[in-house]
Design a protein around this nucleic acid. Structure first.
Lengths: 351, 351
DNA sequence: GCTAAATTCGGGAACGTTTGCGTAAATAAA
DNA sequence: TTTATTTACGCAAACGTTCCCGAATTTAGC
């Protein structure tokens, strides 16, 4: 099953030139006469010449492709990021190789090794929730592989990063709940070690403090490393509902956790927001169609993707080693809907 | 920014062997003594040797990577397919390069050219809804590039294909509506030229005929090529609601169309299913959380992905040209929920 | 003990490209 | 006219593999 290839040599022979001349002509070198260039270009397109990227990669020692690893592409948040990454990568002539860890540290390792063995020029990373050992990333970074972290970053590796303002995002969401009259606000959040978890928890705590509400640690729940979000969310909800002093609101900090909580509440016929308010991080486009329409914290995923790839290309295409790194922080958006209406007056008004 | 590489030559020099011997030892050739093999393997892993896939690709004239193009990866249906494709590709040592057409024929063309110029070994294709000119696919296919079509296939290219039983899937959904007492069933469907559109429309018509309900062509609406599904759905809904003899049920034939219709109905405060029933193709995992819980036709996307990649690898790894092609047909699943309850008795029972 | 065969290895070309270097011819400077 | 410089091109090496072919050594056959 071969797929015939027309090479630079074919052009050279057809025109009685050497391969080096043809190569230079195609790259518009100044040491080739305009007449020769014209002939080469013309003949090249007449036989539909396509340079062999593999040969170029071998020679140039770079592949013009970058890798991106996320926890799962079926998650709208990540697929939007990928869209952002792709949109600029394509324009810059880079190929994007997508990999997913599915929240498994082992799979993450394998995928990273796979990507790097494919000689990618750079790597975009959002770590899995199970990742503890970051030595591979450190090693790659030290060896000079350009890496940009996004969303879930690893703190102690000094490179470009792009995140959303998780602290403020969580702060504002919590304040919103407080203003709506909720007091016992449960935080259903990710694995404890994750950067995003810490930041969002910090925002939550700050909001509670600011409004003089004591933080009840029994209301702060993390998922377990490697666990799947939906069942984890259900287990946490079940535990929360089982305790004597139930929460009156839930703040879930990821897409899957949010839908997991919602599914639990509906399954157990717990009225939202009358018995329990719900707000969560989500990038789903149909949260307004849910029952009830969901209040959400939305992350600018596409933009996160474009800035991450831009930073990466900056590293890749830099002539000399970059030593000054920056962390770009994007703002989260909030959409408040019925799932966090206060129980009394306001909801009536809305109908 | 280089990333040091340890080559086969390093091993050869360290052990006082030739590169050819090392290469053969690594590939476990029979013409290398077990002792030499042992030394090579041992030293190779001690210095963490990784074969350069680019050099291998150049030499072998294949890249061990395949391309897949879908309309958009942020669509759950497609991301599930990609998951399926990836899951087997990884195990077989293949790399998956993902591209999206965003329903633009021009972008599709560019992406395909990009993929093929990256010397992929094979291509997985679901065409954009704007695609009319399939000559590129024909050309590639004729040149010997292994291609497998899935979901939206092109009819007149003879190669492996994998689809769901769209006709039966649509038939069953329509029958369900009829049984629930609906008679003026509108079909909100994709671009007319698409294979899936024709099949689903056929299923719809067959169901209507079987139950002796005359088909009103005014109730069959297609989106326009290149159009984005959500606004298209809204426009169609608006037109349907404007006509004198309104439908009493909507059957939408894609993920985005379904949510588009739902969004319209909710926005205009049309009660589902009392004023209008709704069923649609969807692979979203939260349709049961919608208001009302949505009846859906669900496609086995993951399985579609795995079978498509298996078929492709079969073509790629075949020793001699394959001439016998087959079309694998998977069954669609149905989940009937409140959005298609009949108006009277049954719904009361459910509460 | 001599030929034949098997075993084990090295030399070197090839994959398709880019690029340093060399060198004719053409042009400019002297 | 002679020399220096520019222009325009070719040669060949290199990127890291794989594999054809040949050759040296060992083993088998009789």
């Amino acid at each position: 099953m071969r797929y015939e290839a027309v090479t630079i040599r074919d052009i050279a022979q057809a025109l009685g030139l050497s391969t080096s001349t043809v190569s230079r002509a195609l790259r518009d070198s100044h040491e080739i006469s305009t007449e020769t260039k014209r002939r080469v270009l013309e003949h090249a397109r007449s036989i539909n010449y396509q340079p062999n990227p593999i040969a170029v990669s071998l020679r140039e020692r770079k592949s013009r492709s970058i890798g991106i690893i996320v926890s799962e592409i079926a998650n709208r948040f990540f697929s939007e990021i990928i869209n952002g990454v792709e949109s600029v990568a394509i324009d810059r002539g880079y190929n994007v190789i997508i990999a997913q860890s599915l929240e498994s540290a082992e799979r993450e390792l394998r995928q990273i090794q796979f990507l790097t063995s494919r000689s990618i020029d750079g790597l975009l990373v959002s770590v899995s929730n199970e990742t503890e050992d970051t030595s591979l990333f450190k090693e790659l970074h030290q060896k000079g592989l350009p890496i940009v972290f996004f969303d879930r970053v690893v703190q102690d590796i000094d490179t470009h990063k792009v995140i959303v303002d998780n602290t403020l995002g969580a702060f504002d969401a919590t304040v919103h709940l407080i203003r709506k009259g909720y007091r016992r606000i449960a935080l259903v959040t990710n694995v404890e070690g994750l950067s995003i978890t810490k930041e969002r928890e910090a925002g939550y705590r700050a909001a509670m403090h600011k409004h003089g509400i004591p933080v009840d640690d029994a209301l702060i729940r993390h998922t377990r490393p490697g666990g799947q979000a939906e069942p984890e969310a259900a287990a946490i909800m079940s535990s929360l509902m089982g305790q004597e002093d139930r929460p009156d609101a839930i703040f879930a900090t990821s897409d899957r956790l949010t839908t997991g909580c919602l599914r639990y509440l509906k399954k157990h016929n717990i009225q939202i927001p009358d018995e329990m308010a719900l707000i969560g991080f989500s990038n789903s486009e149909i949260t307004e169609l849910l029952d009830p329409p969901l209040s959400i914290v939305r992350q600018p995923a596409f933009e996160m993707g474009t800035t991450a790839i831009q930073m990466l290309l900056e590293l890749i295409e830099s002539k000399r080693p970059v030593t000054q790194f920056r962390t770009q922080v994007l703002a989260a958006e909030h959409v408040f809907r019925q799932s966090t209406q206060s129980r009394d007056t306001e909801r009536v008004k809305l109908r």
